[in-house]
Design a binder for these strands. Structure first.
Lengths: 222, 222
DNA sequence: AAGTGGTCTAGACCACCTC
DNA sequence: AGGTGGTCTAGACCACTTG
């Protein structure tokens, strides 16, 4: 039943920008319950095909988008899932005032005190990802007691600190001398950079810039 | 009600790997209908927090993942949404046998005839994305009659060819001479590469490699 | 103010998968 | 084969938002 409603929209009965009938009318037309229509519509809405607004009705999106979903695992798991041996090295940790640009990542007007953690993730003994992270000691005081030689901040945070909001951005950057040395590559090679910033409620948790060695791929199947 | 169930799992009552009670038991405990529980569980399942299997029950995922969704718009729209002027140039189109590696993208054992389309998308007159695309003329015969000088294959396909499956991968690559010349940059600069391959049912539609000029970012907010 | 989608109920039946 | 989650129904009430 739900499949029929899906098909009806996919098949071109309604085109980009068109308004669909109210759920109840569709339910009558198909001879099914309104909640069944609601369920189908929710799926289409999740997939980015339609947009719904109370009182405004349901419209086929005017500009179709491809909505892709990616699972970003803990770095250790990502390596192990490839069948590679995982290693991890803490490079440095220190507590200091953030530069203004890091505070800005969190939408904070002024610098605050945070812990800065630099670390290297290895895959089969080869440098894999270098991460440069700031952790808000105000929101996550426990971090002071965590043995970051043994467990990466990445893993500890994912396992222990739920977040309510997360900004992610991907882009590329040529390796500078610093990154090249740590990753064992030549300066100028193309790095895959992942920036992630998380909050719990309005409280900042962490922001991290992860530099992946060339060859890194992000994959999604829909 | 749904929020209470969400909270219950987030707050650590159940940890990674734990088995949750059956939906019906949870419903009794909370004094709500089973379908309400089912709905809450579905959300958690969609977000990657739990895994459900018929007869197997519901488990908190052992290895938490960050699940991010990205909207990938039509390139023209992506440029216009930034407030930039969009331009587009068809570089070449031809019909020929695919190399073996392109056929392999589709899981085809042998080369087939496809149309190859190279094109450049510009943002405020600056080269923005260079795409190198193969379109299956068997599945999409209409493409022969489309004026690809006026509308990009990207836009025409998204608007006219629904797909049932899509593989996407992102990675980086240093610009070669060819890409550098087209994008107006120096060889060696870091490109953001998007590879997309789509099917309708078992039929191949298109595969494309899009090279984005440095500065390109992919953004998601959760 | 009214019309639309969103949530919830109480119940039935189905489909899949593990045991 | 039985137990679990998945879909569906017919209905009620709620919440948002636009005209």
């Amino acid at each position: 039943m739900r499949a029929r409603i899906h098909a009806r929209i996919l098949d071109g009965t309604y085109g980009p920008g068109d308004k669909l009938p109210r759920d109840e009318d569709i339910a009558n037309e198909f001879g099914c319950a309104r909640s069944t229509v609601q369920r189908a519509m929710r799926d289409l809405s999740d997939s980015g095909m339609i947009e719904r607004r109370r009182k405004g009705g349901t419209h086929v999106r005017f500009d179709p988008v491809t909505r892709a979903t990616f699972d970003i695992p803990i770095t250790r798991k990502e390596v192990e899932n490839k069948g590679c041996a995982y290693d991890y090295q803490l490079i440095s940790r220190s507590t200091l005032q953030t530069p203004r640009c890091i505070a800005a990542n969190f939408g904070l007007p002024a610098p605050v005190e945070m812990m800065r953690v630099k670390a290297l993730h290895l895959s089969d003994r080869q440098p894999h990802i270098y991460e440069d992270r700031w952790i808000c000691t105000g929101t996550v005081p426990e971090i002071a007691t965590v043995d970051l030689q043994r467990i990466s901040a990445n893993e500890w945070l994912v396992r222990n600190k739920p977040y309510s909001r997360c900004d992610i951005r991907f882009y590329t950057q040529q390796a500078g001398r610093h990154e090249a040395r740590l990753l064992g590559i030549e300066p100028g090679e193309a790095l895959f950079v992942t920036e992630r910033t998380t909050w719990i409620g309005a409280e900042a948790i962490t922001t991290v810039k992860a530099f992946a060695a060339p060859g890194y791929q992000l994959i999604s199947r829909i």
